[in-house]
């Protein structure tokens, strides 16, 4: 049982399974995201303090969540690659990065648009905002290293090491910026403390939207890995032709 999970790390097996899975995941991503955003946009009341701007939460929070989850997934995939050398996992880390960087950008931009009426400024050097900007830079560096290296295995190894070291430093930066500045940003939107928690009418569509963003991530990573496997096969064919 325990070893069966690793079967999917075989590229051929992965292509078969992911090919069958992909239409369902992509369809679910589309339906759930649309449901969450439509519910949030059209069928939620205004907040008594924030007015209609509260509706931005339904794109802001899911994007911010996926920005962090994508990095965590890259970290796990890099570890699996370094320890067990499954090619699919290295490619999954590579495919996750563009999704993660876009999610970070969405979180930053929608947050800026939200901050303008609420805090009177597009940008503040608040710990959370700053940490996200730094995360954005980490994504850029990681993707640039992938793009700079020609040999796929060398690239996978070096980006894997960078991802491990980068994760430690990203975490340290998160605590360092807390130390450095006091925040404007509210606490966790989904805090378990009852007093701080959002009302249920906002939380339900938010959960739906978060699930939708998660599915979008999974679908895009699946497509990305399939593309990378094909690109690799193409590379192998070119090499063989050159040898012949």
């Amino acid at each position: 049982m325990a070893s069966s999970m690793w079967e999917y790390a075989n590229p051929t097996r992965f292509m078969q399974v992911s090919g069958r899975l992909l239409p369902w995941v992509a369809g679910a991503a589309l339906v759930v995201t649309a449901a969450g955003l439509i519910w949030g946009f059209f069928f939620t009341p205004d907040d008594f303090r924030q007015g209609a701007t509260v509706k931005i939460v339904f794109v802001h929070v899911p994007a911010a969540m996926m920005a962090i989850n994508a990095w965590v997934m890259m970290l796990v995939a890099s570890l699996i690659w370094i320890v067990r050398r499954h090619h699919v996992s290295a490619l999954a880390a590579k495919a996750a990065a563009p999704v993660g960087v876009t999610m970070t950008a969405i979180a930053l931009i929608s947050g800026g648009i939200w901050g303008q009426p609420m805090w009177g400024t597009w940008w503040a050097w608040d710990p959370r905002l700053t940490a996200f900007l730094i995360l954005f830079l980490f994504y850029l560096g990681y993707m640039a290293l992938w793009a700079a290296l020609d040999d796929p295995d060398t690239a996978a190894d070096l980006t894997g090491v960078l991802c491990l070291v980068g994760s430690v430093f990203a975490l340290m930066s998160r605590y360092a910026v807390n130390f450095w500045s006091q925040g404007l940003h509210q606490g966790a939107s989904l805090s378990v403390q009852p007093g701080e928690r959002m009302d249920i009418v906002f939380r339900m569509p938010l959960y739906v939207s978060m699930t939708g963003f998660g599915l979008i991530f999974v679908a895009l990573v699946l497509i990305g890995v399939r593309t990378e496997i094909r690109a690799r096969r193409m590379r192998a064919l070119v090499m063989r032709e050159r040898m012949a």
Binding site: A63, S110, I113, W114, P117
Partner: peptide, 25 residues
Amino acid sequence: APYTAEVLGAYAAALGLLGALVGGV
């Protein structure tokens, strides 16, 4: 109202970026 531009702008930016990402992939 009075936040029409902000809310629509945030949704447009988010969907635009998502669309660009999906299109690129």
